[in-house]
Amino acid sequence: MDLSAATQENLSYILKRIGEKLDVVNVVLLDPVDYNLDKYEDLKWLYDHIMTKDSLSISEKQAFIEELANIRK
């Protein structure tokens, strides 16, 4: 999948995959409606960084979730 373009479909995909990797239980945090496409590059950077890790510590997961909360509308 080509994630270089800031589209709603790519945003939804990125948020879904981030949620899976971070084991997010409250998926409301990752509702694509709550994110602006103008923040796509920030989300793409987080996605790329998270996906390079084989596993994440609890503190890393918490830090990424906090960063997502900062990016939300």
Rank of each mutant, 00 (worst) to 15 (best):
L15M: 14
D38Q: 02
A63S: 09
E67G: 00
L68H: 02
A6Y: 02
I50L: 12
D34R: 09
E41L: 14
S12G: 15
R72M: 09
E41D: 13
S59Q: 14
S12M: 15
P32D: 06
M1N: 15
E66R: 07
Q62W: 04
F64D: 05
V27D: 11
I18V: 11
L15I: 13
K16T: 15
K53F: 09
R17W: 09
K16D: 15
S59L: 14
Y47L: 05
N70P: 08
D23P: 00
Q62S: 10
I58R: 09
M1R: 15
L56P: 15
D2I: 11
A6H: 02
D54V: 14
K39P: 03
M1S: 15
K53L: 11
I14K: 13
K53M: 12
S57Y: 03
K16Y: 13
K44M: 00
V24A: 01
E20C: 05
K21T: 07
M1A: 15
P32G: 04
E67K: 04
R72A: 10
P32R: 04
K53H: 14
T52G: 12
L37W: 01
L29C: 13
K39W: 02
L56F: 15
E60I: 05
L22H: 03
W45A: 08
P32T: 07
A63C: 04
L29I: 12
H49G: 13
P32Q: 08
R17A: 07
A6G: 06
L11P: 10
A63V: 07
P32F: 11
H49P: 12
I58K: 10
R17F: 09
L15D: 11
W45F: 07
D34C: 02
W45R: 07
K21Y: 05
E67T: 02
V24W: 01
L15Q: 13
T7M: 08
I18M: 09
D31C: 00
L29Q: 15
E9I: 03
D34N: 10
D23R: 04
E20W: 08
K44L: 03
E9W: 04
N70K: 13
N10P: 03
D34K: 06
S12Y: 14
V28L: 13
T52E: 15
T52V: 13
W45M: 06
D48N: 08
K44V: 00
D2T: 14
D31W: 00
E60V: 06
A69Y: 10
S12C: 15
D23I: 02
N70S: 12
A69P: 06
Q62P: 02
S59Y: 12
D42T: 02
R72V: 08
Q8I: 11
L68C: 00
E60Q: 10
K73E: 12
Q62D: 07
D23L: 07
L68F: 00
N36P: 09
T7P: 07
Y47D: 01
L30N: 01
K53S: 12
I18S: 06
D48S: 08
N26I: 07
L11V: 07
T52I: 13
D23F: 05
D34W: 02
L3K: 10
L68V: 03
K39N: 04
T7Q: 06
D54F: 13
K39Q: 02
L30A: 03
D38G: 01
S4C: 05
